[in-house]
Design a protein around this nucleic acid. Structure first.
Lengths: 199, 199
DNA sequence: CGACGAAGTGAAACGTGTTCCTATTATGTC
DNA sequence: GACATAATAGGAACACGTTTCACTTCGTCG
């Protein structure tokens, strides 16, 4: 494999290494929360994580890898939190709207963090494929579960709809992050897309 | 107005200035075509456009402004080319697919250029609002025209659908640019979205 | 024509992502 | 415990976007 990858938690043998990785991601989230994309400076991350710059680059080969990995970890938390409880809402549309809006509200509560993670996600190129794929799968599976809780045999249309909804949600988020649309507009865009797609 | 803006063609009084602006955008497109986002280096653009670096920054306050402005100019060309001829296809779905696929094919013929412009569009923040807005309007109007040629009274659903389609198209393009999906997958994503939305 | 302000030039300098190199420290093996 | 290997620290150096500044050129007005 010639792709440059971030070291995942499983790759790391020793507890000290997992601990280092965690400190790095914590520092990333902390800096991103305070000042957004620009505040996540590699030297600052290294210092706050108490790690040398070279070590940081050994764990994450670029700032983008670092931020997308952090996004992945956050998304896993969200997905895990949603996985267990049953979702409110009587039909797929209601449940999907619930999930997307709840997630959106969560992100809007942390504008800087959201800005940093979204920008990174959008700027990522092919070398970040793995990390991106992780996030994409989590998003799709959150949406399909909301559409059909507990169902394992999804039609290709189900998956296609989930994908389109994911696209719309991401675009809306980018619009919000970049100051082009308000929180209400994001909400509305999601509702409209859901209404158009889930009947 | 406190926003930092690119100088638009209309702002520029003298012919020499319009000429400079054109040279800058030409150089941008040329470099982007050869080597993509990374190859569009501000010093290189300035040199190729035969303009001082400071002047380049006076015309376009950042690399992102520069690239999004270039995207706007390219989009205007495409939109103008489509505006006049009648579109093939008997129903809205066929015509929308025609427009999106034709545009997509055009962009895929110039992978580096597409990569550069798409990355810039996705990375743009609030300070690029105006330039982004131009592009967004062109895209929406291309799509609504494809849906209902010649119609002026569009329903809010028409606009909403066009917007969702635009989102899907952009996401698909980002996926392609970043090596996550193939040209066929982009095609397919578009068709699926159109099929789901236009009935 | 001459003066004055705006626009353009050229080059230096700064900030931050990234790379590289050497010395030091952990880690695992016999 | 001694050694080989890998991982980390520490820091210099490089690349490119961006800023700054002193100077020159251009266009316009009196």
């Amino acid at each position: 494999m010639s792709t440059v990858n971030s070291l995942t938690a499983e790759d790391l043998g020793s507890a000290a290494q997992r601990e280092r990785r965690k400190r790095i991601l914590d520092a990333t989230i902390s800096l991103a929360t305070q000042g957004g994309f620009d505040a996540v400076q590699m030297r600052a991350v290294a210092e706050q994580a108490d790690v040398a710059l070279g070590t940081l680059y050994r764990y994450f080969p670029s700032k983008i890898h670092l931020l997308v990995s952090a996004l992945g970890r956050e998304f896993e938390r969200v997905e895990a939190a949603l996985r267990d409880k049953p979702l409110p809402g009587d039909d797929p549309a209601d449940r999907v709207i619930y999930v997307l809006k709840k997630t959106t509200r969560g992100m809007q509560g942390d504008p800087h963090l959201t800005e940093a993670l979204t920008r990174a996600f959008m700027f990522a190129d092919a070398s970040v494929q793995n990390e991106i794929h992780t996030v994409g799968m989590l998003l799709t599976s959150m949406l399909t579960r909301a559409m059909h809780p507990g169902r394992t045999d999804l039609t290709s249309d189900d998956v296609a709809i989930a994908r389109v909804l994911g696209d719309v949600w991401l675009s809306a988020l980018v619009g919000w992050v970049t100051g082009r649309s308000s929180a209400e507009e994001v909400s509305e865009q999601i509702e409209v897309a859901v209404r158009l797609l889930l009947r």
